[in-house]
Amino acid sequence: MLNLLTAERIKLSRSKKLMVVLGIFILLPIFQAINTKLNVENGKELNQVVDTVINGATGIMMIDKNALTIFLVLCSFVSFFIGEEFQNGTIRNALSLGRSRTHYYLTKFVIAGLVTLVGTIIMTALGMVSFSIIFGFGEVADINHYYLYSLKTFGTLYLLILANVSVYVMIGFLTKNSGVALIWSFLYTIATGFLPDIFRHTKHFQQVTDWFTETFLFYYNFATPAHIAKFPDMVMVSLITIVLSSTLGIISFKRTDIK
């Protein structure tokens, strides 16, 4: 698997798509900090519940603030990252050398996870720095141990994002085509992101929606103690999503005929 990871590193070192993804993760928090400053200068009052990030300390929630953008960027990247291997036929190069399909699948997942990690670290760090410069570092209300809180928050947010990335990887291997993967990943993101808004109005369905990671990102506030107490649930749902989607993806990929 290390050999496959080395091959991926060489491929990504020349990847324009990766550069675009990282470019978005770098520019977006800076743009948002400037935009927020302009809004405040024009009389807007910042509210953490609505705006999510209002100073450097709340910048740890940049992933939450930009969850939909992150999903759309990553689903595009992953769809091309996997789909092009099938479409260019380059997937044959590794598999015909006797490389295990499970290792190949996991390699793609690990790389997608690493790109997600680097991207989210960049976005969070630049968000915290940008908002600190403009609005000061400040604090997160009711949080006494900020460092511990920030580590837990970032870790949980990352896992929630990674769970969706895991689903995108599975879709990429199931569809074997960049365009088709992109459409299905987009539909998955929109469906599990926005349909819970409807279902959450009924008591029974509310529990069902909590099995989708996007529900936490879109309908929970990571600075509220009641929701912070739900971090273990979020981690569990994320891990279950990762394990289930990866298992399904690997089983399906192992049975797939490569054209």
């Binding site: 491929k11 036929g89 044959r92 590794a94």
Partner: peptide, 28 residues
Amino acid sequence: MGQSIETPALYPDLTARENLRVQAANGG
């Protein structure tokens, strides 16, 4: 074994040397 099945399976955005480096890595 080695194979070239149907159309040449290459990474279009990589040079000849980089394509070979990828395959060397794949093969360990």
